[in-house]
C-alpha cells in the first residue's frame, strides 16, 4: 500500500487509487450539490398556504336555465353553465371521433346533473379567459366560448372545436355535496 502513494509513473494509467479518490470525491460532491439544488427549486412550487386554498363551494339553485357565471377557484375563473336542452343536444350530437381532443359530453358532466357544466375558464392555448359567459359576449362558432387572444372556439361542452388550443377546457375535480351545491377542488 505504501508504494501506491508515490507518483503516478509506476501505476497503470486510469485506475490508480488516486484516480479512485478523485472520482469518488467529485461524484459525492456532485450528488451533494444536486441535493442542495432541489430544495431551492421546490421552494418555487406552490407553498402550503397556497395549496390549502384549494376548494370552493357554490350553490347552483340561483342559476337559471341558459345562464352562465364565473366563480373563482385557486385564483382562476371557473365557468358554471346551466345548459338548455338545446345546448345539451348540440353537445351530444357531435361526432366524437372528429374532435381534436375526443371526449363525449357524458364524461364532462355528472350523471343526473347533465344540465350543469363546470369547466375551468382558462384557454388551454396560452391561458387567457375565453368570452361567452355573458349573453352579450361572443360565443364562437359553436355556441360555447370564444377566446379573443388567439381565436379558439369551444362548444357547449367546453370542447375545442377550432383555433390553436390543443385541449378541451379542463373539467376541475368537483362533486355535488348536496342536491344544489357543488364543491370544486
Amino acid at each position: 500500500m505504501a508504494n501506491t502513494a508515490h507518483g503516478h509513473a509506476a501505476e497503470p494509467a486510469g485506475d490508480t487509487r488516486r484516480d479512485f479518490l478523485l472520482h469518488s470525491t467529485v461524484a459525492v460532491g456532485a450528488v451533494g450539490a444536486a441535493m442542495m439544488v432541489w430544495p431551492l427549486i421546490h421552494s418555487m412550487n406552490p407553498a402550503a398556504d397556497t395549496l390549502s386554498l384549494s376548494t370552493t363551494e357554490f350553490n347552483l339553485s340561483g342559476l337559471a336555465e341558459g345562464q352562465r357565471i364565473t366563480i373563482v377557484w385557486r385564483g382562476k375563473p371557473v365557468f358554471v353553465a346551466h345548459r338548455t336542452a338545446k345546448e345539451i343536444e348540440e353537445a351530444r350530437a357531435v361526432r366524437v371521433a372528429e374532435l381534436r381532443d375526443p371526449q363525449t359530453d357524458d364524461v364532462r358532466v355528472k350523471k343526473g346533473k347533465e344540465q350543469f357544466l363546470v369547466i375551468e375558464g382558462t384557454c388551454t392555448h396560452l391561458g387567457c379567459i375565453p368570452m361567452g359567459v355573458k349573453t352579450t359576449e361572443p360565443h364562437g362558432d359553436f355556441g360555447g366560448w370564444f377566446c379573443p387572444c388567439h381565436g379558439s372556439h369551444y362548444d357547449t361542452s367546453g370542447r375545442i372545436r377550432k383555433g390553436p388550443a390543443p385541449l378541451n377546457l379542463h373539467v376541475p375535480p368537483y362533486q355535488f355535496i348536496s342536491d344544489s351545491t357543488v364543491r370544486i377542488g
Partner: peptide, 17 residues
C-alpha cells in the same frame, strides 16, 4: 408552469419571484 407561478395562476408568488 406551476413551478414558474408558485401557484395555480399568476399571483403574488409569481410577482415576488
Amino acid at each position: 408552469v406551476t413551478l414558474l407561478w408558485g401557484g395555480f395562476s399568476v399571483d403574488n408568488p409569481t410577482l415576488n419571484r
